[in-house]
Design a protein around this nucleic acid. Structure first.
Length: 405
RNA sequence: GGGGGGAUGCCCGAGUGGUUAAAGGGGGCAGACUGUAAAUCUGUUGGCGAUGCCUACAUAGGUUCAAAUCCUAUUCCCCCCA
């Protein structure tokens, strides 16, 4: 058994803040003494069922708790989804049907299992306890929270002062989330910094209900591949945990150098001392950035696939980009039905290969000199190409297809 | 309930009768440079086998030789007063 301090330090890695740190230590201690596991809470929005490295940061932290023997409750916020966490951007959210939520939850579950221990994970829906509440119950709950307290929330405060609208139901969102904590008697709630207000609200409400307050554990928001905005699918700057090794490796290699230490810390299990020395090495130039990035990519691919696949992905990467050779495997494009006098229009090929969405886009690529066949540039958008079996069509740096007849 | 403002391409945002497929910026894509990086520079960014044609400025009609721009109705959003 690890000492409390060691447990605490392991958990602390990568966290932005633990509120309060002493509270967590006390809980860990109590759990060890009594043998009762802590209840770890994580709320998830059921609307976006695609898990990427950004989500993984929090999930991996949760996994650590499991490894220490604690119980994890994943709360699917199906009830609260009908409110939507107030952001001021989209006040109204599309209502999901029960089927959609169930389907999303299932997809989620399949992906969690890549990170979490399914045996120690309980998935619950907050509609289960929020749904049956009567209006009188709601008033009772709400009476424990003051308006001033609610309006402290950045987003509300800002909107209020800017004269932008705030709907009543939005005020209820943090309360609902806090009530989840009360209902579950949670000991620790994890979330991104954007969850700070809601999680602290949970502490307040638990106190009101005479419960021991939960500890808030905040993880940083992982910046996306662009290094600027948070990782999100809709921004396209993400690495999905179910992506093929090759894609995962390639995407990580496209990170900017400055992002590397952050990714090492939040996305891998490389010991912190080593992360620090890598960081120092990068700063004083004793460590080669590209090698380091390859290491990073390898660590991450290994985590979600395997060491062999990671090695293969790296070999492939080096082959294509360092030695400028073509990839070993690529999609095939069957052209036998498209031949006219043994020729195929270049634009048509690109569209058929799925490399571009439209003929116009294909023309543009050709005109810009991004298209080649067997290394020979095609620059005329109206060209009809005489195709030979096995030739390689390339568009831009990343898109390849083998032509077959 | 009354008064006012607004809805433009992936996003932001100009444009108030005619060289407007629509300025500018962001983002994306491509090229150069590289370490498939970042930064920078350049080009490009509705569709169509295409020196032209079609579709687009919330929706539906209308005026006009000509509309994103004017008129009418509809939908949605915001602000102020009550």
């Amino acid at each position: 058994m690890l000492t409390i301090d060691k447990q605490f330090n392991a958990i602390k890695r990568g966290t932005l803040e633990i509120v309060p740190e002493e509270g967590l230590k006390a809980k860990l201690k109590k759990a060890q003494e009594t043998g009762n596991p802590l209840k770890i809470k994580l709320g998830l929005d059921p609307t976006a069922p695609y898990i990427h490295l950004g989500h993984a940061v929090v999930l991996r932290k949760i996994r650590q708790f499991q490894d220490l023997g604690h119980e994890v409750y994943i709360i699917i916020g199906d009830f609260t989804a009908s409110i939507g966490d107030p952001s001021g951007k989209s006040v109204t959210r599309p209502q999901l049907t029960a089927e959609e939520i169930a389907a999303n939850a299932k997809t989620y579950y399949d992906q969690y299992c890549m990170i979490l221990d399914p045996a120690k994970t309980k998935v619950v829906f907050n509609s289960e306890w929020l749904g049956p509440l009567k209006f009188a119950d709601v008033i009772k709950i709400v009476s424990k929270v003051t308006v001033a307290r609610i309006l402290e929330r950045d987003d509300f405060e800002k909107r209020l002062s800017e004269g932008r609208p705030i709907s009543m139901h939005e005020l209820l969102y943090p309360v609902c989330q806090a009530y989840d904590s009360v209902f579950l008697h949670s000991d620790v709630e994890l979330g991104g910094t954007d969850q700070k207000f809601n999680i602290l609200m949970g502490r307040d409400l638990q106190t009101q209900y005479g419960q021991e307050e939960q500890v808030g554990l905040f993880m940083p928001i992982l910046p996306g591949l662009d290094g600027v905005q948070k990782m999100s699918k809709s921004l396209g700057n993400y690495v999905g945990i179910t992506e093929p090794p090759k894609d995962m490796f390639g995407k990580i290699m496209s990170l900017s150098d400055e992002m590397m230490p952050t990714y090492f810390e939040l996305c891998t299990d490389v010991p912190m001392e080593e992360v620090e020395s890598i960081k120092a090495g990068l700063t004083n130039g004793t460590v080669h950035p590209m090698d380091t990035k390859k290491r990073l990519a390898r660590e991450i691919v290994t985590m979600y696939h395997s060491a062999e696949e990671a090695a293969q992905a790296q070999a492939e990467f080096e082959r294509v980009f360092s030695q400028h050779e073509i990839p070993t495997d690529m999609p095939e494009l069957k052209l036998s039905d498209e031949l006219t006098d043994g020729k195929v229009w270049i634009v048509k090929m690109l569209v058929m290969a799925g490399m571009v969405p439209s003929n116009s886009e294909a023309r543009r690529l050709v005109q810009q000199g991004a298209v080649s066949i067997d290394g020979e540039k095609v620059s005329d958008p109206s060209a009809n190409i005489e195709v030979k079996d096995g030739q390689v069509l390339r568009a831009g740096k990343l898109k390849f297809a083998r032509l077959t007849l």
